[in-house]
């Protein structure tokens, strides 16, 4: 996580229109904002679009940012407003489909984790991402290479199955297990209060 004084310097430079400085802020916060949306919007491309809007809004409103909260917490607030507006628009507009499953997941996620009550200075997603980094390093080689194939190369489970002698179901189950292990590891790292 970026230290507070560097962040302040970057924010001041961004306020004067320095896009490179703002890019540094984006660099250290984009993952948590994108994760926030991906958990709540199935379509990852749509989630990333929403994350773009968050940083655009942040850039436009930098003048109103008084530094009482950290930049990450501030943009997280903007993200939650954007998500609310987006969901409302999807409901009002005759363009688009039903989001029942999404809202079921979102309420379950909010119940299981404490995202909405996350305290400053860091949003919960950022804390979890840092813990995930640690947990990934503890995984065995085969688990890690399966995750790389799935998430880094971007193969579907079917493509992975076709490339190995193992069946589709076996790979699905292994991925489920790995994600479960990672979830447990993250919980342990974050301590009992979370």
């Amino acid at each position: 996580m970026m230290d507070e004084s560097t962040e302040k310097t970057l924010i001041n430079a961004s306020k004067l229109g320095d896009i490179a400085a703002f890019d540094e802020l984006v660099k250290s916060n984009q993952a948590s904002i994108r994760a926030y949306f991906r958990m709540r919007v199935f379509d990852w491309a749509a989630a990333d679009d929403l994350a773009q809007e968050v940083f655009l809004t942040a850039y436009k409103r930098l003048g109103t940012f008084r530094g009482e909260a950290r930049f990450g917490a501030w943009t997280r607030g903007i993200a939650s407003n954007h998500l609310r507006n987006w969901l409302r628009q999807r409901r009002d507009e005759p363009v688009g489909g039903g989001e029942e499953l999404q809202s079921l997941f979102t309420s379950q996620i909010d119940l299981s984790y404490q995202f909405e009550s996350s305290v400053e200075p860091e949003p919960e997603e950022a804390v979890m991402l840092a813990a995930l980094d640690n947990c990934l390093s503890k995984l065995g080689r085969s688990a890690r290479s399966l995750l790389d194939e799935r998430y880094h190369v971007g193969k579907t489970v079917r493509e992975i199955a076709d490339g190995t002698s193992r069946g589709y179901s076996a790979i699905v189950m292994q991925l489920l297990r790995i994600r479960k292990i990672l979830a447990t590891c993250i919980r342990q790292q974050l301590g009992p209060t979370r």
Partner: peptide, 13 residues
Amino acid sequence: AEQLVIDSLLGVT
């Protein structure tokens, strides 16, 4: 929901 959360985090990371 837990699977969805970890899947999202892995995707971003």
